[in-house]
Each structure stands twice: as structure tokens, then as C-alpha cells.
Design a protein around this nucleic acid. Structure first.
Lengths: 333, 333
DNA sequence: CGCTGCCCATGAAAGGTTTCACGTCCTGGC
DNA sequence: GCCAGGACGTGAAACCTTTCATGGGCAGCG
């Protein structure tokens, strides 16, 4: 590689205009395909611009138009494999529309979320896709004024993309009941997340209908289990457990194994999310699949619509979920 | 949430200045802590600014200063669990320095990489952290002029952050040899990546010294194995295989299992990277750990230095790697 | 008491772009 | 052969900030 010339300064529009022998305005119109420019002139300007390697200065453009061409993506935790796939699709979809994405990871903490969002807004994003950490929190305020679509939570006033969590919870419960399980435990996600509550509530009411809910505990979206959870597991009262996330399911399976029991023979487990590990795990995890890619794409689409039509009524899109039956559930005779 | 007021227009510096009864210049100086402003005036201006909820317009600032406060992070594939951890640390470290990060995923394709980089540069980043897909490719050109640090590859002319791949390869081989293995196969990463070549070469030469290299094939950084690779595995000539990445190792173990064999009893496997799955897998994967977090932090640090001191000679930092012995290697009597 | 010099504070330019309002020239209709 | 109007092109303002060059006032020194 050549050593970087210290001043390969990029050509400015003014220079292009001069080189092409036209006015600044014409150059701008030609390059943006707006205004009225004769066919020949336009081509000439374009040619000159190409020769000079002209690249519009986005900062200047942003200053005039107020649009930066960037969107923000606020995610709780990249370390949870659920999110990278989401991020990947958002990034690709955004790029397809000419947007770059600012990604931020809020480390599961509300202050970090706040700092992150602040920084993002200061840096000027045209819109935000937000996967909230909790249902409340200070962040909503900050985002006000920036077109936003919310993932996972049904926050009032925002465009929302969700999966049918209640249905997922029900599906999981019914799968276990149909497999002959009666004594069922539930490890749901954090209290603060309404989506976690929905999964749990639906599962619980389905369990209660035809079976027996032996316990219900909470855990963060993490492999590491809280004492409350390990205690529940160690009570050995449940032959099957429904978890609020695959990560929790895997953590639970790990703990169950460490107790000297085997999944699914001694305890059955069902997850939620269908992260990539789910099928790689031994035993492969029975779980609820949600169409992450579709949801991510829908989020971008919704955001793009929202950015150009701020007045429209909010929309809420709910995606169907599906139970994927693998090897972590035992079918009792 | 209240319906978004359509025009909560953010206060401008001019407005702050007027409200505070000072000049534009004083306001700017006060807020940036530069120039000379009397203590009392400064405080007053700051107070007024806070009241008005003033937030500097970064686009305008960027236009003046040429600094956007954003850095770009170019990663091959978020779906490979190696990268999210990297991204997470980069994002956090960058934020700690007041930078937002544009993340882009190049989907493993060189054109996508090029498009992504273009978009990023257009959107104006002050610096780039780049994990190249291949050693060559057109992208280097684009990046010219933007301070850049390169991860993983020793690209001439750039600041470089690497791990000691050769040592990793050697460690893996010696571990297997010490465990009594003689016939060893190698599945290395893609040809195009010099880091993959280094790992493989070191492993191969160590194997050859005291054992027997039965085959050497290549595979993308993916769970899915190419025909060449499955054929090698099916030849059953190796009692142990060294892989260029944990993802490949896991793919290989899956295939080995599907052949009716068991890891490590029939075939031993060692990975590279120590991604989170490695220890969750059954059997837990013996692998080479590289300090991703440290490397990510070092990359940000190097970039920050480079951005403020463009002239300095390039630096190359090489991190040590370490073999983590788990359950995927059988110790022969 | 006058002057030098410092501390504060200010006006104005500059940075690259978009876009409004306007002018010129040519075409076509009558 | 005239005029209306369209097509094409242009000058200049505006976006919001940073920063240079400048100026006023006051303290302290000689």
C-alpha cells in the first residue's frame, strides 16, 4: 500500500461546477437528479464529477437537509445470540436503502441505555430502532422527536414490531402437556419486560388448565442462573420446564446436568427464540421460533415509512411464532 | 407517551447566545470550554443553554471541524459468535471516548465489503476499525485517507492488532502430539486469509516434526462443511483434527457424530478462538483462546491515537494466545 | 498620571451543500 | 410575425457552528 498522502482532499461541488463550467446550482441539481438540467449538461457534469472523484460531503448535506442518512439501532446485549442475527438483517436492510447504522449495545443497564441514546441523537440519526431493556425508563423521553420503531415491547405511541409471545407461551405449554407432562415449572425472563410477562402468563394459564404449575421464577436473559432459579430446579418437583429464552434454557440444562440428571429423560426443557445454538446443543433444544429476520426487515421498513410520513397513525405488526420440536422434551408413554 | 409534537425544534447556539445576551462567539467558547470567557459569563451561558435544552448540531460542527465523532467498524459476519464480543467491546470503548460506532457487516463478500465501506466513508467517519475479509481486495484503496486500524491481518502500512496465530497453531499441534496422537488432519480457514494460513502452517509444521499429517483441507468460517472437508473426515485416517476456528470445529464434530463416531473417543478435535459456544458444547471444545476483549480495546486505543497523530509510524500489536484444554481431545494411554 | 498589556468579549468569515426566486432564450400557437 | 410559456440555467441566501482578527476597558507598572 502506498503511504497515505496527507492531503488527498476530496473535490467539492464548487470545484466540480467550475471544472464543468456550470453554476453550483446546476451541479447540485445534476448530481441529485432534481431541478431542471438539460440532458447534455447533466451528463457532462456527471462525467466531470466522476473524473474528479467527487463525493458529496455528507456533513454539509446533513446540515442543509437535516437528514444524516444514518439510523440508530439500540440493542440490549450483543452477547445474547438472539441479537446479532437481528442486527445483521437490520444493517443489510438499511444499507439497501442507503442508510448506515449506528449500533449500540446498552449492556443491559438503563443508564448505559440512556448514555447511548444521547450520544446517538447528538450524532444525528434520522430514525431509531429500539429494543428496550425495560418497559419504562427515561429513554422514551430522549427519543421523542426522532422517528422510532420499537421491537418486542408494545410501547404506546410508537410503531411496534412484535412476535405473538402469548401464543408462544401457550404453544410451549401445550406441547409439554400433550407429551404427558403434568408438573411443570416456569422460568420466565426479567420482570421488567412485558414481553417476558406475556410469554409466562400464557404458558402458566395453559399449564393450569390441564396440568400443575409447580413453580414460577424469573431470570435475566443469561446463561447464569439466579439462586432462586437453581433452588427451584433442585426441588425436583417438575418433570418439565418452560423457559423465557433459549439462553435461560441452556443455562438450565447445564444446571440440570450438573445435578446429575439428564435432559430430557429426567427433566424436559423448552426454550424461546430459536437462537442458532438451540439446534447445536446436545440435546437439541425444543423451542419457539420467531422470525427474527422478518421482524428485523419489518422494523427497517416501518422506520423508513415513518421517517417519510411522520403524521401517520402508529402501526403494530405481530409475527407468528412456531414450535420447533427437537430433542429436549421427553414424550411420556 | 405524548404524541410527538411535530416541531420540538432543537435550540440553536444563536438562540442560546441571544437568550443569554452574549455573542455567538462567546456562547461557542463557553460551551466548548475554549477561548477566553469570564467565569461568571460562562456559567450564565451554560445555565441558559441547559434551560433551553441546547444540543449542538453535530452536522454543523462536523462541517466546520471535519470531525464527525463517529468511527466505523467493519466486520465480516456477525453471525460468527466471535464477532459480537469484539463489537461489544469496541462499541463500549468507543463510547467511553465519546465516539459512536457505525457497524457494518460485510456478509463475507468482497463487493458488500466495498459497498459498506463506501457508505461509511461517505457518511463521514473519523476512523475505521477493519477486520478484512481477505488480504487483498479493493477496499484498501477506499480507506486511504481515513485513519484505520486493521484487525487480524498484517496489512502493510496500517496499524495492526493481531494474535499470535502461529503460536496458536503450534500449541494445538503440540497438545495433540503430547496426548499421543500421531495421525492428524488439519481443516484450516479460507485460503484468502493470511491469519488462517499462519495458523495452519504452524500447526502443520509442528505435526510433521513428530507426527504424521494425514490431510489438510480448507473451509469457510462456518458450521457448514465443504465436500472436500467431509470427504477428509470420512476417510477416517486421522485420530485428531486441528481446525482453524471453533465454528469449523463444531461443524466437524457434528459431522463426525453423524458418521456414528464419538468425540473425543474416536476422533479428537481442537478449535480456535474460544467462542462462547466452545465450552457449552458437548463435549466442551478444547481450543485456543485469544483475548478478544483486549484486542478490541487495543484497536480502539490504537485508532484514537492514530486519529490524533497521523504522522506516527505504524504499530503492530500481537497478543498472546493460550490453549484451553477441555473435553474434545482424547489422551491416549 | 500615562502607557503597556492582559482579560473578555465580539463581529464576521468560512465551511459545502440545497433550494428559492429569477432571468434568458427558444419554441410553438395563433 | 408576435407573444405566451416552457425549458434550462444562475445568483444568492440559508443551514449552524468554529475561530480568526479585532477592540474596549481596566489594572498595574514606571
Amino acid at each position: 500500500m502506498a503511504k497515505s498522502e496527507d492531503l488527498p482532499r476530496r473535490a467539492t461541488l464548487k470545484e466540480v461546477a467550475k471544472a464543468a463550467g456550470v453554476s453550483l446550482a446546476s451541479a447540485s441539481y445534476a448530481i441529485n437528479g432534481a431541478g431542471s438540467v438539460g440532458e447534455a449538461t447533466r451528463e457532462h457534469i456527471l462525467k466531470v464529477a466522476a473524473e474528479l472523484g467527487y463525493r458529496p460531503n455528507q456533513s454539509a448535506k446533513a446540515m442543509k437537509t437535516g437528514k444524516t442518512g444514518a439510523i440508530g439501532l439500540i440493542l440490549p446485549d450483543l452477547t445474547n445470540p438472539f441479537f446479532p442475527s437481528l442486527a445483521q438483517v437490520v444493517i443489510q436492510a438499511a444499507r439497501a436503502h442507503g442508510y448506515s447504522v449506528f449500533l449500540t449495545d446498552t449492556e443491559g443497564s438503563a443508564e448505559a441505555e440512556e448514555r447511548a441514546v444521547n450520544l446517538m441523537i447528538d450524532h444525528g440519526v434520522d430514525g431509531v430502532i429500539w429494543f428496550p431493556i425495560a418497559d419504562d425508563g427515561p429513554v422514551g423521553k430522549l427519543i421523542e422527536g426522532v422517528p422510532t420503531v420499537v421491537l418486542d415491547r408494545n410501547l404506546p405511541g410508537y410503531d411496534v414490531i412484535q412476535a405473538d409471545y402469548a401464543d408462544g407461551g401457550r404453544l410451549a405449554a401445550e406441547h409439554l402437556l400433550a407429551a404427558g407432562h403434568v408438573n411443570i415449572g416456569v422460568i420466565s425472563g426479567p420482570h421488567a419486560a412485558s414481553s417476558a410477562r406475556q410469554r409466562a402468563e400464557a404458558a402458566i394459564s395453559a399449564v393450569r388448565e390441564r396440568g400443575n404449575l409447580v413453580w414460577h421464577v424469573h431470570n435475566a436473559y443469561s446463561l447464569d442462573l439466579e439462586p432462586e432459579v437453581t433452588k427451584a430446579l433442585e426441588s425436583r418437583t417438575a418433570t418439565a420446564v418452560i423457559t423465557g429464552a433459549d439462553l435461560i434454557a441452556i443455562g438450565a440444562m447445564r444446571h440440570i446436568r450438573s445435578m446429575g440428571l439428564v435432559v430430557p429423560d429426567d427433566v424436559s426443557v423448552v426454550g424461546f427464540d430459536d437462537i442458532p445454538w438451540a439446534q447445536l446443543h446436545t440435546p437439541a433444544l425444543t423451542t419457539i421460533d420467531m422470525p427474527v429476520e422478518d421482524m428485523a426487515a419489518a422494523a427497517v421498513e416501518a422506520l423508513i415509512r415513518r421517517m417519510s410520513a411522520r403524521g401517520e397513525p402508529r402501526r403494530r405488526v405481530v409475527f407468528n411464532v412456531e414450535l420447533i420440536s427437537r430433542d429436549s422434551v421427553r414424550f411420556l408413554a
